[in-house]
Design a protein around this nucleic acid. Sequence first.
DNA 1: TAGACCTGATGAAACGTTACACCACGCACG
DNA 2: CGTGCGTGGTGTAACGTTTCATCAGGTCTA
Lengths: 327, 327
Amino acid sequence: MATVKDIAAAVGVSIATVSNVLNGRPNVGRANRQRVLQVAKKLGYSPNRAAQAMRTGLTRAIGLVLPDLTNPFFPELAQAVENTARSYGLLVCLIDSQGRVDGESDGFALLLQHAVDGIIWCPLGPRLPAKLKKLARPVVLIDRPKPGYAVVHSDYVMGGRLLAEYALRMGHTRVGLLSGPQNLESARQRRDGFVAAYPRDIKIAWEVSVGFDGLLTQEAVDALAVRRNATLIVAGNDLIAINAIRWLSEHGVRVPEDVSITGFDNIRWAEVVTPRLTTIAQPVGAIGAKAVELMQEIMSGEKIPARRTVFDVTLIERDSVKYLGRR
Amino acid sequence: MATVKDIAAAVGVSIATVSNVLNGRPNVGRANRQRVLQVAKKLGYSPNRAAQAMRTGLTRAIGLVLPDLTNPFFPELAQAVENTARSYGLLVCLIDSQGRVDGESDGFALLLQHAVDGIIWCPLGPRLPAKLKKLARPVVLIDRPKPGYAVVHSDYVMGGRLLAEYALRMGHTRVGLLSGPQNLESARQRRDGFVAAYPRDIKIAWEVSVGFDGLLTQEAVDALAVRRNATLIVAGNDLIAINAIRWLSEHGVRVPEDVSITGFDNIRWAEVVTPRLTTIAQPVGAIGAKAVELMQEIMSGEKIPARRTVFDVTLIERDSVKYLGRR
DNA sequence: TAGACCTGATGAAACGTTACACCACGCACG
DNA sequence: CGTGCGTGGTGTAACGTTTCATCAGGTCTA
């Protein structure tokens, strides 16, 4: 591997001069600047990141800490993050905690050892390890807000509202709520957005909340079995909706003929499942990209970045909601 | 951050001694060894990776280069790789080429800059960039063999054979082949394993091959429309099978009543789709884990690792194949 | 013409490790 | 008693960069 010393020798200047032109500093003459650039290219020079890191403390790598890649929401996110990061010349170091808080903190420790320049984090555990906090590297949360952090996510209450409007338009006035975990702001806002949109027109027949992994609790199954007189089930995300559909069809309840259902996230399963799931689409790619851009802004110190970036969502109408006629 | 100098000062020995005990070298007395360890722990010492990398040339990080995380085969793989790597203290640096060969080589360049210790690669492009090859870092291929590389993948011809046996058992003797890209060994072996298993009993009514992303070509659609008198369609992977099912049901052909179909991979969609897909399960997690273990073996130089590790696959019987009665 | 001030360039220290070469000491052996 | 060796320990160079302080020489100004 060519080093700055090699370039200096080839051009006949000092390594300081080489370093100066490579870093775009002004104190070097036109002729030398050109020759250095030229030789650097010819030698296929690329700076030794380890040496740079040692001098500057910066690694040009960022961490991406996710709870579970097998949750189909995350791969697309990871892909967007990686590609945007790469366009900034940043390497993405992946941590998948497999839903375990201790895995997450192990991951943080590893990222800390490697001194990543920043972390994009979809939080599972409650807080950042103290050591990492002391390092004061920029942290951008994704999808799940937490006080004191920059965060980018989509407009969950808008999503809830969109679903409520649509429900009404399709003639549904009694609904059951199969919400996500209510300790998560992202789940709470979906629910609240829906409930608050048309409180007079839409009655909540029943309500139970489950995890975002979609596993149905006994309570949830009981609710699905009875359904009271809800004509529509509003699920906290697509995974929940899909599991509900499967449970229902295994128990002889047809969707949407007997009961309608909506999801949230528009994961790719949503259109392969039967019936194809009506849901809310988040701009996952844009969210991932924005998180990296934010990170880059913070790192370059150009400006104080927004604490909170919220993306609009859209309704994806498919086949899982039956039209009951105008009210 | 505490350094070895800090420890040395606190204990009252030289930094060389500190380094010696930290690296388990024998030339240091019992008393000093204990005190150094103790102080290191108290100070929360963790070695500066950049400095280590500069001295030793080793970074304790590996690259994971994938063609497309949104292909549901890969997230599980990535998760397994990351978790196993972490258990060895290795950081995983992710590259997702989004199916573009130039993205892949950009990714390799980035990994090269960061001097990862090795690369786990599910190859898209034909060859490793020359520079990387010169570095002679260990490379382990996953899923797609290539001459001259260590590779871990599952037993595709066994999968093909299993499907053939099953087809026969269910009474299917005329099949259509919707194979994967035949320039990929993994697709070719699936097909050949199936075809070669019972050449006298099973007739191939027609055959077309498409990409592993499952997008149906015009040729594929034509074949699906006619189907000749095939009673079973053997798809190259689950994505292809699922797209075929969707096309068929959109065109009034019922699965499996009118035609049966099988997949390959057992991606998680396979059990949410209707009908639930009969397919071949690969031990994806085991494959990812094994790739890392192999990498670790090569890096530690303990032994010459196997060039090729092949995993058994299993048949997952679900609802997409109709029983036609014993022949 | 002396001083001030630019421009272009350089020497050398520093970042935190590792590892080679060396040293001091004590003991055993011929 | 001299030599050799094993044990425990240290000094220091080197990895490749960046950056600070410095400098030579030229030009402008008073």
